[in-house]
Design a protein around this nucleic acid. Sequence first.
RNA 1: GGGUAGGUACCAAAGUAGUCAAAUGGACCUGACUGUAAAUCAGGUGGCUUACGCCUCCGGGGGUGCAAGUCCCUCCCUGCCCA
Length: 403
Amino acid sequence: MENTSKQEKIKEILTRGVEQVFDLEHLEKALAGEKLNIKHGVDPTGPKIHLGRASALLKLKDLQDLGHQIILIIGDFTAQIGDASDKTAMRRSLSEEEIKKNMADYLPQMGRILDMEKTKVYYNGEWLSRLAVKNLFLIAQNFTAQQMIQRRNFKERWDQDKPIGLHELLYPIFQGYDSVAIRADLEVGGYDQLFNLQTGREIQKFFGQKQQDIMSLKMLIGPDGRKMSTSWGNVINMADAPQQMYGLIMSMKDDLMFDYFEVCTRVPMSRVAELENAMKGGKINPRDIKKELAREIVKIFHGAEAAVSAEQEFENVFKDKKLPSEIFQIEIKEEELGVVDLLVALNLASSKAEAKRLIEQKGVKIGGEDNLIVKENLQEKIKIEEGMIVQVGKRKFAKIKKA
RNA sequence: GGGUAGGUACCAAAGUAGUCAAAUGGACCUGACUGUAAAUCAGGUGGCUUACGCCUCCGGGGGUGCAAGUCCCUCCCUGCCCA
């Protein structure tokens, strides 16, 4: 009995949110057996981990629960190069200082998903910064320039006459060498990393090691339909406050929901299929599906309680158009202020010009708790009163505190 | 090293002396509508000024000219071709 359920778990692990596995047959057997060294590399290129990356952590958690050894490689060395996998433009190298700063926040975030007690963490600068040039040279002989360049991202840049840094070409080698250093049995990474993962296999072979299996995961699309990427700004971060995270999920395009269900939650796939069918058949309001999704995701990162209150708050503010339960208070010294100046003073507009625009567009409401009034007159003077509420757009609020 | 094409706002990309605070698309913001912060539609997106208007802006610096994103010089950066 226990065996069959374990087999089922493994099946799920091998398929859910997974783009490709190699060598599938071998891995399926291996997962059922002895403790495996499972490698996952993270480059601390920013202080926050977004959901796209967090989805890999969920996968690792599943593997960890199965009893395998998770080994996180923090790419303090490789981050200085910048992985080209998800880049369509050359990225400036990060300074050591920036990397240190970013790293400080990384592990606690990962600890929200993984059991860090059971997780090994290495920094690849430990071995890469000492890698002899001669060895690099020997390893490099296993690859051709064409192989390195032909991968999709470089090819795109090549075709568009965009720069490709020589150092970027070495990235896969470094990542691959990590696999040697820790004797990885399996490496998990995003689909965009497929090439790097394979490179690990080659280099392990060169060093006479057993070759790792590789699992590449589906890439998460940002809520706006573009690839989720920090430089696009279309990210949902795992450290985002529950309320904000919930809102960001609600703002995604409807057709993306099911990908998120698969990749970012552990809602049974049967349930997901059910929801998808219901939506196609017009039997269910897409909004309700999205609510379920938002709730599930917030639950994973912040717990069930936070998920419930985030949902209530959202309903309150956006469905019932009530005021949020907590409004940021700002002290105002003046007795009276023009509308424009007030918006700037409350930080609801970054300049007077913007404040004017907002007012002209009927986006500004001021008043007491229950009677917010749209302000259209730029000239109007507002008498400052304790507890006065100022709303800009649908979701920016401030409460005035008299000095 | 030689030749050549480029560097424009958050991003991409037009513009090659005045009509340029700079087309267009994306992103973002506001409104309408709704099923939601979805989709769709409309409008908006340098700053200051009550306003006439003024200031800053097209890789850096320097020039020409009544007038420069646009011409000239120079420097920095990038692509491509050649060596």
